[in-house]
Design a protein around this nucleic acid. Structure first.
Length: 312
DNA sequence: ATCCAGGCTCCTG
DNA sequence: CAGGAGCATGGA
């Protein structure tokens, strides 16, 4: 029995300049975009918003200089609350409300970093859909390759997530915290989680489900306090907390300076050896103060695109 | 086989 | 507080 579907469209005007096509390029190359469906011109993702399962479809209608996006929201119930939540979600995910000009000024003062940013005019950070997704993803991504991490995440989503069916197509939904919390450790171990990763994922899922981790409350705290709160949970260190800040909460200035990929990229680019130290990364990053989250996004994208150019 | 990968915890000094 | 060992995974 197929529920009848409702669909509404709205227009979103991003701060200019903005190139939605580059965000799609980023998503296509990224191993962390597992629940998104990206084709040549559109982004689709199923989400639970304002108590409803809906499919978001986004595409560009304007130009980089005069950007405009269309957002279609499809689901059994698409009322004003759902539409408002959907628009807020898209604005946050694609960082649409931020004027990129000051970041451009900072980039211009650093020729080495400018060469990293220059190939992607109009690109700006693309976030994960929720802080919870960022937290689970960061824990799973600790100390393993992005490709293997993607495989493990997919297994978790298959195990605990639901689906939304729209026009005959199935779209995966991120598992609810309670659904992950209800899993057995053995289920995870059988899917290539290490013991500590399994324990950490179950632990934070429980904490989110019962309110000990409250992302809405964390979102209004200074980043340093968010790190203090999150790192009280087992399996969450500074790197993980900074990833949640940057990719989940959209903290514009958060940088996971201990990240091995950042350390390698910055070490090579600035002649600091095969891996810069975390301290050296923080030293360099001082020049990008206010925009260190954006800088991290571009360094990671740069590394990712080089990998793609080499053929994976 | 050895090293590495978008770390964390716990234990020393 | 800084530094290091041990931890678990799969891939190159």
């Amino acid at each position: 029995m197929i529920a009848p579907m409702d669909m509404h469209q709205i227009e979103i005007v991003p701060a200019a300049p903005y190139a939605f096509a580059r965000a799609l390029d980023y998503l296509r190359a990224s191993h962390t975009a597992l629940l998104e469906r990206i084709d040549a011109t559109t982004y689709r993702r199923a989400l639970r918003l304002a108590g409803q399962d809906v499919l978001l479809t986004v595409w560009a209608t304007g130009t980089t200089a005069a950007p405009r996006l269309r957002l279609a929201v499809t689901g059994a119930v698409v009322d004003a609350a759902v539409l408002a939540a959907a628009e807020a979600q898209v604005r946050r995910t694609f960082t649409l409300g931020v004027d990129p000009a000051p970041f451009g000024q900072i980039v211009a003062g650093d020729p080495i970093f400018a060469a990293v940013v220059a190939p992607y005019p109009g690109l700006r950070p693309v976030l994960l859909a929720s802080p919870f997704e960022a937290l689970i993803g960061a824990i799973i991504g600790q100390q393993i390759t992005t490709v293997f991490a993607a495989k493990v995440k997919r297994a978790l989503y298959d195990l605990a997530g639901r689906h939304l069916t729209v026009a005959g197509a199935r779209y995966p939904l991120l598992p609810e915290p309670a659904a992950i919390a209800a899993l057995d450790e053995g289920d995870l171990l059988a899917r290539q989680f290490s013991r500590q990763k399994a324990a950490a994922v179950l632990g934070v899922a429980r904490a989110v489900a019962d309110g000990r981790i409250d992302f809405a409350a964390l979102a209004v705290l200074p980043p340093a306090e968010v790190i203090t709160h999150l790192t009280q949970h087992k399996g969450v260190g500074r790197w993980t907390a900074e990833c949640v800040l940057m990719r989940g909460l959209g903290a514009q200035d958060a940088i996971p300076a201990g990240d091995i990929g950042l350390r390698a990229a910055i070490g090579r680019a600035y002649g600091l050896g095969r891996h810069a130290t975390e301290a050296e990364v923080r030293e360099r990053a001082a020049a990008w103060a206010g925009w260190r989250g954006w800088a991290t996004f571009f360094w990671w994208h740069h590394v990712q695109m080089e990998r793609v150019a080499r053929g994976r």
